[in-house]
Design a protein around this nucleic acid. Sequence first.
DNA 1: TTATTAGTTTCCATAGCTGGAAAGTATAGT
DNA 2: ACTATACTTTCCAGCTATGGAAACTAATAA
Lengths: 110, 110
Amino acid sequence: METNKRLDLIFFALADSRRRAILEELSEDKKTVSELANNFSLTLGAISKHLSLLQEADLIYKTKQGRQVFCHMNFDIWKEVASYISMQAKFWNNRLDELDGFINKGGRDE
Amino acid sequence: METNKRLDLIFFALADSRRRAILEELSEDKKTVSELANNFSLTLGAISKHLSLLQEADLIYKTKQGRQVFCHMNFDIWKEVASYISMQAKFWNNRLDELDGFINKGGRDE
DNA sequence: TTATTAGTTTCCATAGCTGGAAAGTATAGT
DNA sequence: ACTATACTTTCCAGCTATGGAAACTAATAA
């Protein structure tokens, strides 16, 4: 898929705090659709749509075990987000070092 | 403003390729609203709304010179985006190094 | 086979985004 | 004072996002 379209999907998926919260749960461990529905007080239908959207954006992937569907974080996709940010960064003058340092110490502000 | 709400605004603003294109223009130099309207073949009204949205997200700021309004990239906001990404990254095992390397060489894939 | 469980998809109502047109505001020019 | 320029805001129409309810599919259990 075209990069611009992929970035549209990725950023749109990230533009919702509930979906970001889902990702944070998944970054710790895989979860079934039902588990996520319970944790976020949404119907199965509603959570299923959020998950499809996250999958469209390649931020997660699913595996099936019997009736259950496990959702997993797709860690590789963050490379694409990082790439976009560094592309923006290349226009900066001396701010790239600042950003690198910031990322390398884990995003903590001083 | 609350961090979650700010991230909503930032990612939503980034979820549109036209707005990302505006940001790329502004990362090179400040531009007036009219210049941007011409470059993107939008009416002044339409572009003005995109710019307000970008300003709400703190991705740009405006300065006035007479009748003209100059739009400037707000480079500092990318720290917040980088922070979110590194927060996600802290859950990864050995993928952080990979991401760091990727960012440090400018987002090029090999 | 029949019933239950786990998800997905469809339908519908509500709400929000987007863009053009047009009206409104503020600054500059004559 | 009057006109033109540079935007912003409002109004309206069309499209999309979201969520619940209900219908539908697939896999397990009895």
